[in-house]
Design a protein around this nucleic acid. Structure first.
Lengths: 165, 165
DNA sequence: TTGGAGTGTCAACAAAGCTGACGTATTGTG
DNA sequence: CACAATACGTCAGCTTTGTTGACACTCCAA
């Protein structure tokens, strides 16, 4: 069993197989972002706004610094996005309770409404893909994705999972 | 068995599970592009150059129109990238043999060298992820990715797979 | 010969990333 | 208390990569 397994793995990991995996990720990611992008295009928003909204919804009260680390962008880049979201009344920024230097970020009613529209669209596609592929495939999908992450991002991903049970 | 299976599926497709899948794709894609990005940053190139080089290598002699469809960008956007690659001697553009309006694109020696550097970096990460997750997980990974694609992209993906045996 | 497809290019613009610098609260520490 | 460090916001300027719109050229096919 260990022998046959390692043989199977060697056979599997040809450059051609890896290339196909790389292309699959590329094409799948196009589909992944297509539906929210279509919604965002009708407003003055882009993918960056979507990402901010998503993670604020996911971890309400999160700080700017934390969001920066998750998104992996600079303070200036995030701030530009955040400013428009606050101006438009989708995000609320409250001064921190324990540490008044921090800003805790929350979605407003309108922010929640947009978040739902966007993630509904994205979830619909994921749901269909999961259903087509079957539960075992989904488990494998998740395992490979996790293995592809940078260790730091894997930690952040894991802590997000914990925080929502 | 059919009952327990459908029960399992229903349990599986909670919004929370889908949300985690969405976040996993986001974080994994960061890792996916990180290694080539680091190499490209040392030159005057970006992700767009990488994508062009990848697919020209994959389908040598491909036309501009075909490349446009695969990459999903505008002619002008691709042309800007292509021009610098041709000027820098990484890509060669030959007038089509049967239809002289078309341009057939090929990588030069230097282009092949860069392609190898970039895809080596990317394959190394994929190889490690595949190894960590195991062959069954990889099969599931591929199945879900394919199901996530837009139908048109799925066709293009399939035809790329055929063309390389 | 004429319409349309494939290609290249100009101009102008937008989204979203970056660096560097600076200012202002606020907090923690010596 | 004084001062360094942290968290945040912002100004300015730049880059990459995408977008429209317009126009010209080549070439194929009807």
């Amino acid at each position: 069993m260990p022998d046959s397994h390692s043989g199977e793995s060697l056979l599997f990991l040809t450059d051609e197989q890896l290339r196909q995996g790389i292309e699959a990720v590329f094409f799948a990611y196009q589909g992944f972002t297509a539906d929210p992008d279509r919604i965002l295009a009708t407003m003055a928003y882009g993918r960056a706004h979507h990402r901010a909204i998503h993670f604020i919804n996911r971890a309400p009260g999160t700080t700017v610094t934390n969001l920066l680390a998750i998104l992996g962008v600079t303070k200036q880049s995030l701030n530009r996005v955040l400013r428009t979201l606050i101006e438009d009344g989708l995000v609320e920024s409250r001064v921190g309770a324990s540490d008044r230097r921090e800003r805790n970020l929350y979605l407003t009613e309108a922010g929640l409404a947009l978040e739902n529209r966007l993630s509904d669209a994205q979830r619909t596609r994921m749901r269909a893909a999961y259903r087509d592929a079957g539960p075992e495939a989904v488990a494998g999908f998740r395992r490979v994705l996790e293995a592809m992450m940078d260790p730091e991002m894997r930690r952040r991903y894991a802590s997000l999972r914990e925080s929502s049970q």
